[in-house]
Design a protein around this nucleic acid. Structure first.
Lengths: 194, 194
DNA sequence: GTCTATACATTGATAGAC
DNA sequence: GTCTATCAATGTATAGAC
């Protein structure tokens, strides 16, 4: 079957997602037009609709994809000491935040731009991620190696703190990844009273 | 001097700022139209332009107003023990975040929607606020009552954590203000190694 | 699969009457 | 100070040719 002239589906699909992710993260969902995304990819606006039913679905797919990848990649072992698990979570979250800053920032900030239906779905996924962290805090508190009176609030606070990395981290800046992890681990370890 | 028919400048001015603040915070700057703001206030869209030259100036004024109020209200005394100063900062920031959640959220999130000129100005104000916190950490580290190897990064991390309150706090929810302050103080005190 | 062309709604902002 | 009316620009999305 001959390829249609100008057809480059294998690259255009991912390119659209990539451009949308970058532009949405930088300027906000509502501030970015389909024309801008198309221009970034190098196609006309109409061509985007061969890949997504509409702009809302494009955002929802980006967020869902990121959250599912996050949840799929996170490996926890309840048998390990809670402090070790906490450190692993921190490494995992910061590494992800530095490798995919746009996706992390977007999933944290643009929930509000989703339709109620999509919002429920993505918020559920995020909730599971928060639960993964809280489970570690609960174990640490129960076992006595941490002092965490309010595990829910502490989980939210820690995630806010860690995700904040995407606000100030600049590639090639003052700090490399390991240094960032080290500083944050000191903060987190102290915060949970270990 | 007789009032023009229908003129209610004393209420309309603040009402516009209030409506814009709420709508911008909830849906994002770009997602909100001048017509929506006007409808919320109870006037026609054209009337808004008697109070602001354009939409961008409306946002910039909101952010500048908030940051200046914040900086003006913050009272610090370098002579006090650093840990006391840190606790005061925390109380101040959380109290503000719970009393004006939209303004705090907006100033944290919509810097990206400002023109370069406005951005520079507001980012400067925010920088001064971050510096106010870092000054406390530097004093604590120097004096030995805190362990803060990287004061800049720690200041950014703490502000991210504290500002995150606006993401989950709900009026009349599980926790009252004093309880929130207490939990966060435990976290922060531990994080700075005190 | 992509393009050109276009329908149609909505946007920010202005002009002039009251 | 506010309203009505309106403009030019831009938005999302679709139709039909290739």
């Amino acid at each position: 079957m001959a390829r249609t002239q100008g057809s480059r589906a294998e690259i255009t699909g991912p390119a659209i997602r990539e451009a949308a992710r970058r532009l949405f993260a930088r300027h906000g969902f509502a501030a970015v037009s389909m024309r801008q995304i198309a221009a970034e990819v190098g196609v006309q606006a109409g061509a985007l609709y061969a890949y997504t039913p509409d702009k809302q679905a494009l955002l929802a797919d980006l967020l869902r994809g990121h959250m599912e990848e996050l949840l799929g990649a996170w490996q926890d072992d309840p048998a390990r000491p809670p402090l070790d698990r906490l450190q692993s979570f921190l490494r995992f979250h910061i590494r992800t935040s530095l490798e995919h800053p746009e996706a992390v920032f977007l999933s944290y900030m643009e929930l509000r731009s989703l339709t109620p239906e999509n919002h429920r779905q993505i918020a559920d996924l995020r909730r599971r991620y928060e639960d993964a962290l809280e489970a570690i805090l609960i174990a640490g508190q129960a076992q006595g190696s941490m002092s965490v009176p309010d595990t829910r609030l502490t989980a939210m606070a820690l995630i806010s703190m860690l995700t904040g990395v995407t606000n100030w981290y600049r590639e090639g800046g003052r700090l490399d990844r390991d240094k960032v992890v080290a500083v944050y681990w000191d903060l987190v370890r102290g915060a949970v009273g270990a």
